[in-house]
Write a protein that binds this DNA or RNA. Structure first.
Lengths: 163, 163
DNA sequence: TATTGTTATACTCTATAACTATA
DNA sequence: TATAGTTATAGAGTATAACAATA
């Protein structure tokens, strides 16, 4: 355990309380990290997320977009890529001929397994930067906030004072 | 019509372990939240971060870019806006006539004070979604990760950097 | 020669709107 | 009429490269 701490990047004290800024920095770090972890598999973190959600159940494209948190037109591009790579395919839904189910191909399943290994390792690396007792709390907190609605927040600014 | 149920956003179980995806979702939430909190003041979260860092000390533009975590050309746009709004100004640095110090104007200081109130309220709202004992841990963990380097991570996959 | 600030440009990402075929 | 999927397009955001002034 190194006592000497890397101080190359000065922690800007004034921004330490800025929750939005902190999240932005950490988000960028995790994105670079996950992108690197998935590079060999030639998929991006987003493609991985879509593929993972698709494997979890038989979802239509609009469902998938809602679940992963993407615009439906943004999902289109990702799905085109995944289909092109042979990792997923659109299957007609008999009960509604407008809709399509996104299915994961065997190749996609195989890739997801390999991706899980890489991402588990990557996550462990990131969490290792935290004190042991903070890790599980951090993941739990993130999970809770990730499922939060705008509506769940107290209307701090919606009730702006009448001038 | 379907009645709006709180279950619109199902916590997608399969993605609950995806650290990168979780951060992306939470980051998006906090961005919307901070943007809303700062809307009345007519500045974006990024402008606020730059202004805050500028107030913290006499920094040149390249320093400021490094501290806040922006590309220097990206910072240019933000600084142009801040200067246009009369919140900050570029001042020549006598010791190095190439460089410029970014200074916060009185109007900028005043705005920062009002912003702090709004953001403190906003942050409290977000943290209120977490169990009481998780809040301080969460902030601490974020602060630690925000200061982390790529190099601090165990080299799990980082053997090959992009080009 | 290297660095600061700057501009112009290109590229990525994402959202908007419109269209089709079904319901 | 409304909805699922699709396409084309525009916009914001960001990065890349080149340039002038200074070190």
């Amino acid at each position: 355990m190194a006592v000497t701490v890397r101080q190359e990047t000065d922690p800007p004290e004034a921004l330490a309380d800025d929750l939005c800024w902190l999240m932005g920095r950490v988000n960028a770090l995790l994105n670079r990290e996950a992108t690197a972890a998935l590079r060999e598999l030639e998929i991006t973190p987003r493609k991985h997320a879509v593929l993972t959600a698709a494997r979890a159940g038989e979802h239509t494209q609009t469902d998938l977009a809602r679940i992963v948190g993407l615009d439906k037109t943004t999902l289109m591009v990702t799905l085109d890529h995944l289909e092109q790579m042979g990792l997923a395919e659109r299957r007609p839904l008999p009960s509604d001929r407008r809709a399509r189910i996104v299915a994961v191909t065997p190749a996609g399943e195989q890739l997801l397994d390999r991706a899980e290994t890489a991402l588990t390792q990557s996550r462990a690396g990131v969490l290792s930067l935290l004190p042991v007792d903070e890790r599980v709390v951090f993941m739990h907190a993130l999970g809770r906030l990730a499922c939060a609605h705008e509506d769940d927040l107290p209307a701090c600014c919606a009730s702006s004072l009448p001038d």
